[in-house]
Design a protein around this nucleic acid. Structure first.
Lengths: 138, 138
DNA sequence: TATGCACCCTGTAGCAACTACAGGGTCAAG
DNA sequence: CTTGACCCTGTAGTTGCTACAGGGTGCATA
């Protein structure tokens, strides 16, 4: 399959596919006589892995690690586990942050309708979270 | 107060404060004789607003809009509301995605201990989400 | 056969939002 | 009077793409 098809199949832009190749995440495929990239099912598999991992918030570096581990199928699973565990912690933190944010946005949106900005709670909501213990002189 | 104090008070790096100034988010402060930036409480207020909004995932553009609206306190609240609503949708999507991810990570971490990578579920878990309706010939 | 048009190629430059120097100046303490 | 922590400007790097520019390929259609 050609790059455009692969891109479509994985909801990726063509440029991004080439970017992943240059970044060493996706192996360079065979080329046609016309120098077109020619992908097989393994590439599709791998790119969908990459996309999904990226969607799930793994950095390209983390994806690289994961792929390396996936390729070396004899190795014990501990390393994968470590990456995933580290990531889980991060994900849980993000969820907590975003949940707090969601509540504030809801509150803001709920309290904010049809009022002039002067009465808009968003400014208050977002404004006054200053670090206290910093010894500021003004 | 000097830039280092302001930075500390808002958990921001000095370079980032200067970056916000150059980006038009934080007004240029007065300077001392030594050409040091000299900030007042209004700057502290505004920077804490910026930091918090950024923390909550607003883009610099959105923050700029928010600040403009906050400055022009006569305007109706609708525009603020629109920005916040748009952002809420995004946040809810992110939370949903991350929650799904958290569940998968937990499952993976639970099932993956002490096995070789060949039996590691993380690869399966991340792999086979391919768009179906794309008319691929292989 | 020609001539579009969609697709492919490489390479480089740009985006957000910082972050990190390099190469200097300032100032208070010891 | 020097040492060290701070400040200044400016530029270049980072991540993860995205968007050209300037060209080549392949297939249908007039």
């Amino acid at each position: 399959m050609k790059i455009g098809e692969l891109a479509k199949a994985t909801a990726t832009k063509v440029e991004t596919v080439r970017f992943y190749e240059k970044a060493g995440l996706l192996p360079s495929p065979a080329r046609t006589d016309a120098n077109y990239r020619s992908y097989g099912p393994a590439h599709l598999q791998r790119l969908s892995f990459i996309r999904r991992a990226r969607d799930l918030g793994f950095s390209l570096d983390a994806v690289r690690d994961l792929l390396a581990l996936a390729d070396d199928r004899a190795k014990p699973c501990g390393a994968v586990d470590a990456i995933a565990s580290g990531h889980l912690t991060e994900v849980e933190r993000k969820i907590a942050d975003l949940s707090a944010m969601r509540e504030e946005l809801r509150r803001v949106i709920g309290s904010c309708r049809h009022n002039p900005v002067a009465d808009c709670k968003i400014i208050e909501t977002l404004g006054p979270r200053v670090a206290v213990n910093a010894g500021i002189s003004a």
